[in-house]
Simulated scan of single mutants.
Amino acid sequence: MDIDPDTAPLERRLEALGVDGYLIDDDASDPDQRYLSGFSAPDPYQTLITAGETVLLVSGLEYGRARSEATADTVARLSEYDYQDHVAEHGPFEGKIRTIAAFLADHGVGSVAVPRRFPTGTADGLRDHGLSVTVETEGVVAGIRATKTAWEIDQIRATQRANQAAMGRAESLIASADVAADGTLIHDDEPLTSERVKTEIEQTLLEYGCGLDETIVACGADGADPHDRGSGPLEAHEPIVIDIFPRDKETGYFGDMTRTVSHGDPGEEVRRRYEVTREAYEAGLEAVEPGVTGAAVHDVVCDVIEDAGYETLRSDPTTETGFIHSTGHGVGLDIHEEPRLSPAGEELEPGHVVTVEPGIYDPAVGGIRIEDLVVITEDGTENLTDYPVALEATLR
């Protein structure tokens, strides 16, 4: 990773807590671990942050690659702290604890702060060896990660380009389908299913070096649940929510985009809800700028939807229809991270990358959601999404 993390806020937090260092014990699926170490490995390794220094502790298997790829100042091997001897004498768990304890002692660390997701077993084991372990409750590293560098923004932009190609493939499949007598969409003489469209999405993303664990292609009532992945045959004259959130396999950075399309006229009420959602989406995009809070952006979106006569969680916290989620969230090494465009959303700053994704939902009508991904700049925003917004599915 071509990034030099700014650990100064973390070091100030460590000083305030009165500890010697900050320790992560996790694999690179943890975004804080990947960010601070600049390294990706499938098995847990340790990252230690002290005043002015970042040190990794890795297995011999990962040592050579860590030395060439990691952004850490120093990389150490488990064997340097007699790992195999500790395991042979005390077993895998206690052997690991004794190795980490020796690693910390070698760097003059007797007390550490750890992230909220730090393994309880590791924490208790280190305490049994006389180390002080304090949970860092503010999530300061997530706050650091929220402000992206130019390099990070480029990675997110690249993932979003892949996302757009996949969205185009999905929309084209729907637009080119035939319609059976019962309204089912037909492609290659077979029902066009949510699963088929998802497969095409995944195959397109792979061509761009991206992948995803899940995506959403949800038709009709399925789309009225914002996180229903969708299943089964797709229907004509129904809104189809397509939400794709891929991750670049090499850099780990996500993209995120949603479009709602229909093959054929979905009816007056769906068209009206679509136009209201589009108006809310455009108002949200216009409201996003440096110095504005995520809460203020969320309020702007809620104003549009409520003025059109639909409920939001702001107008009715118990509603199960209408706008039933927040306006947006940060995107980076995690698909949902700081900052948030929500009732508690804090001030937006240059370098923040956020989604703007209002929606209106009702099982009796279906779901509508439109989502772009934008970066906050010094004087406004840059939209990282370049894809048409239209209800009628079109060949792309």
Rank of each mutant, 00 (worst) to 15 (best):
T193D: 05
T193P: 00
T193K: 05
T193R: 01
S194F: 00
S194H: 13
E195L: 03
E195K: 08
E195T: 01
R196A: 02
R196H: 04
R196T: 11
R196F: 01
R196I: 10
R196Y: 00
R196M: 13
V197H: 00
K198D: 07
K198A: 10
K198Y: 09
T199Y: 06
T199E: 13
T199H: 03
E200C: 02
E200L: 00
I201N: 13
I201M: 03
T204K: 02
L205Q: 10
L205I: 10
L205D: 13
L205M: 10
L205R: 00
L205N: 14
L205W: 03
L206N: 12
E207F: 09
E207L: 11
E207R: 06
Y208G: 13
Y208H: 15
G209Y: 14
G209M: 11
C210E: 05
C210W: 09
L212T: 12
L212V: 12
E214V: 15
E214H: 14
E214R: 15
T215L: 00
T215H: 09
I216Q: 10
I216S: 03
I216H: 06
I216L: 03
I216V: 11
V217M: 07
C219S: 14
C219M: 09
G220M: 07
G220P: 04
G220N: 01
A221E: 15
A221K: 04
D222A: 07
D222G: 03
D222N: 02
G223L: 02
G223S: 08
A224Q: 02
A224R: 04
A224G: 08
A224V: 00
A224K: 02
P226M: 12
D228Q: 10
D228F: 06
D228H: 14
D228A: 08
D228W: 05
R229K: 11
R229F: 13
G230N: 07
S231T: 04
G232C: 10
G232L: 09
G232T: 10
P233R: 11
P233C: 06
P233F: 15
L234G: 02
E235A: 08
E235P: 01
E235D: 13
E235M: 15
A236P: 04
H237N: 11
H237T: 13
E238Y: 12
E238G: 09
P239L: 12
P239K: 04
P239I: 05
I240F: 03
I240E: 03
V241P: 05
V241C: 09
